[in-house]
Design a protein around this nucleic acid. Structure first.
Lengths: 216, 216
DNA sequence: AGTATTTTGTGAAAAATTTCACATTTCATT
DNA sequence: AATGAAATGTGAAATTTTTCACAAAATACT
């Protein structure tokens, strides 16, 4: 399996499928899914074929079966426990983010150095940062979200990994380095906006100069 | 210019450059930047060459000049005004997000239907949603962040675009459709975690079965 | 000044990803 | 049962993206 984007698309198909299911559909065709997530129908079929997902010629795919299979592939057939390190603005927003819960992701606890943030009896408790290592070990947590200042992020990541964390979703604007056997995905909000700004500018230039489409 | 990833890398180079500059460096080589963001040195040079950025053979690139050029390409040579529609957990976290301000992105106001969220005199004011259209026109805003529930997202997007918004950064877990002349980038937090979960599982399987690396 | 070394810039090659195109199967209709 | 229409599944082609490899230039050193 070599195609990284494919996995993201599988998730997108799944979201689309839930929506179609809610609308009362029972089966879908590759072009429905393609339309829904903005790719070619052949891309959908190729993606499925990579994972041995098959439908019926002329009959399409059965939505329930397809959702189940996708959840299985994506590891979403079980509930996953996640901790959040850094309970500033972003961190605490994520702690309250409903979609995680709905999607079988359980935020077990938050951790922060700032005593003002601590709330041991809250719905989702917030503990001092030195309690994170024992917590990970005791609860066998494998996933963490890092939302600390960039200066602290790598250090926190190293600590989490040494405690047993395998996957990190990092919101600090820094590219985390991970040893073999663990993995970090980075979400950089400023970079996302910057990227958008670039493409908006390209758009504006096109408007002025519809010819020379492809120049900086 | 056909390479979408290239733009993201330019932003990453820039982040790395600021860090290097803070450490006292004056010039960099393609392998420094490559190392910093995790790509091949030839990738760095190819990216630069696509935008006509050149250094000196054996002398590398001058950091200040390079940062300036990258900011220019990325449209970050001016301050950009952004509004946030939807001031729930995510929306209000973003309103307080410091990195935006530091990076020349000015959050001008928030908008929400919930009167409890309104705060017209706050540092960054929050207005009723029906004030968004006049606000956009009056202040010539081109960029918006959408952080409303998924059910409302497309409708909000259409409204914003009709008011003059050109670029949308969308946090609702739905793929926004945009007419020609405007653009939306989507950040789906659950999808990011799901993706991470998949790759953590792949990692674990590799550990058990270091051979059959490439199977679902 | 001359030589050796380092680093860029870029065509060409390789690799990855997407799209095409069509044989094959299934379903619907008569 | 036979016919026609609609969809899948997948090699092959096309496209995109990355990496290689090396000539040319700039710097450092003697």
């Amino acid at each position: 399996m070599k195609n990284r984007n494919c996995i993201i698309r599988l998730s997108r198909y799944k979201t689309a499928l839930y929506r179609l299911k809610a609308l009362g559909f029972v089966k879908v065709f590759s072009d429905n899914l393609a339309e829904a997530i903005g790719v070619m129908p052949s891309q959908v079929r190729k993606d499925f074929s990579l994972f041995g997902i098959s439908g019926k010629k002329r009959g399409g795919y059965h939505i329930d079966a397809l959702i189940e299979r996708l959840n299985e592939i994506l590891g979403k057939d079980k509930v996953h426990t996640v901790i959040i390190v850094g309970c500033g603005h972003i961190g605490s927003a994520l702690m309250k983010y409903r979609k995680f819960e709905d999607g079988g992701i359980k935020i077990a606890a938050g951790f922060d150095i700032d005593p003002a943030k601590h709330a041991q009896d809250a719905d989702i408790p917030v503990f001092p940062i030195d309690r994170v290592k024992p917590f990970i070990k005791e609860h066998n947590v494998e996933l963490a979200i890092i939302a600390v200042p960039d200066i602290a992020a790598q250090q926190v990541a190293d600590m989490l990994i040494s405690a047993g964390i395998k996957g990190i979703l990092n919101f600090a604007p820094i590219r985390l380095r991970c040893p073999e056997g663990s993995i970090a995905h980075n979400i950089n909000l400023e970079l996302e906006l910057e990227n958008l700004i670039y493409f908006v500018n390209v758009l504006k230039k096109k408007r002025v100069n519809p010819d020379e489409t492809e120049n900086a």
